[in-house]
Design a binder for these strands. Structure first.
Length: 290
DNA sequence: AATGGCGCCTGAACGC
DNA sequence: TGCGTTCAGGCGCCAT
C-alpha cells in the first residue's frame, strides 16, 4: 500500500532516469480513478523536468511543446492509490523486447510514458491510482487535489506547537486524524499504527486531548517511522516495488501492524486489532495509553 | 463545519 | 473443484 515512504522511494527511483528526457508517446489502458484530462498526443515532444512529491502525489513537470510559449507547459499528477507501482525500463535495458524498448502492456498496466531515455509504466491492479494532466501544480485540477493536504512531515515549519495546535482542533480518534492527513500528511494505515506505538499513544485517544509533550513525541515518531521506512525501501506487503523492481523491507520491522495476537516486542502483551472508521488498527494495550 | 460513511476496484484468502 | 463472501485500503465525495 503506497504511503509516503513508498511514494518517495518511487520518486527517487524514477527522477534521475526521467529528468531531461523528451516524451515520444503515451499510452492509456483501462480507466483509472480520474481521466487523464487531455489527449495522449498533448504530451508528445515535451521536456521532462524533475519529479516532485507532495504528500502521496507525484508531479512530473513537462515543458511546453516545441515551438510553443512557456505557458504551454504543464505536468502529470500521479497517485498510486492502493495498489499502484511504477516501473522504469530504460533504453537499451535487458528488458527491451523485439517489439521495442518494452514488453506490451499487461492486464494491469494502465499508463505508459515513452521517452527518449526509457519508458515509465504504471501498474495498478485495483485502479485507485490516477494520472492527471494539469497546466501547473497551482492550477486545477492539481491545485484542487492538493489544496486540502496538511503539512509535509519534514517541513521545518511544522514544529511541535503547530502540530499540537492541529491536533487540538480535532475531536476524532488520533488514529483517524493521522490517516486523514489534516495534521501531517504521509502516514497511511501501516505507519499511523507504527507511529502511535512508537509514541506510546492509544489509537482511540481523541486528538484534542493529547498534551503538548505527547504531541511532540508523536510528531517525532511519525518522522522517525517514515524516515526508517524510506531508508529500507518502504513496505512490501504483497507487491510494492520501486521502479527498478526493488522490494521494501519495512514489513520486517513492524511492531504492531499485522501482528494481532502476537506478543508485543516490548512487553510481551498480545497485540490487539480493532476497527476504526472501517480500517484495521493494531496496537499494544500495555505500551499505548490514552 | 466537522465528521462519519460510502464507493471505487481486484486478487487473495477463506468457508462450505 | 468451484463458487460465493469477506477483506485489504487512499481518499474524494456526500449526507448529516
Amino acid at each position: 500500500m503506497p504511503e509516503l515512504p513508498e511514494v518517495e522511494v518511487t520518486r527517487l527511483s524514477i527522477a534521475p532516469s526521467l529528468r531531461g528526457s523528451i516524451v515520444l508517446q503515451a499510452h492509456l489502458g483501462k480507466p483509472l480513478r480520474w481521466p487523464l484530462g487531455c489527449r495522449t498526443g498533448h504530451l508528445v515532444g515535451r521536456h521532462v523536468g524533475d519529479t516532485q512529491r507532495r504528500g502521496k502525489y507525484l508531479w512530473i513537470p513537462l515543458g511546453p511543446r516545441p515551438g510553443r510559449a512557456a505557458d504551454d507547459a504543464g505536468g502529470l499528477l500521479l497517485h498510486l492509490g492502493m495498489s499502484g507501482s511504477l516501473q522504469w525500463v530504460g533504453v537499451g535495458s535487458s528488458q527491451a523486447g523485439p517489439a521495442g524498448p518494452l514488453d506490451p502492456p499487461g492486464k494491469h498496466d494502465h499508463f505508459d510514458l515513452v521517452t527518449t531515455q526509457g519508458t515509465l509504466r504504471l501498474h495498478d491492479p485495483r485502479r485507485f491510482g490516477a494520472v492527471v494532466w494539469s497546466d501547473a501544480l497551482t492550477s486545477d485540477p492539481a491545485a484542487k487535489l492538493l489544496q486540502r493536504l496538511g503539512p509535509e512531515p519534514f517541513d521545518p515549519a511544522l514544529d511541535d506547537a503547530a502540530f499540537h495546535a492541529r491536533l487540538r482542533a480535532r475531536r476524532s480518534a488520533i488514529k483517524q486524524v493521522l490517516l486523514s492527513g489534516d495534521a501531517v500528511v504521509g502516514a497511511g494505515n501501516i505507519y499511523a499504527c507504527e507511529a502511535l506505538f512508537a509514541a506510546g499513544i492509544d489509537p482511540r485517544t481523541p486528538a484534542c486531548r493529547i498534551s503538548r509533550a505527547r504531541a511532540a513525541r508523536l510528531l517525532a515518531a511519525v518522522r522517525h517511522t517514515l524516515s526508517r521506512a524510506m531508508a529500507v525501501g518502504g513496505t512490501t506487503l504483497r507487491d510494492f516495488r520501486d521502479a527498478h523492481g526493488m522490494s521494501g523491507e519495512f514489513q520486517n520491522e513492524a511492531q504492531v501492524y499485522g501482528r494481532e495476537a502476537l506478543p508485543c516486542h516490548h512487553c510481551g502483551t498480545p497485540i490487539r486489532r480493532l476497527v476504526q472508521a472501517q480500517r484495521a488498527t493494531y496496537y499494544c494495550p500495555m505500551c499505548q495509553k490514552r
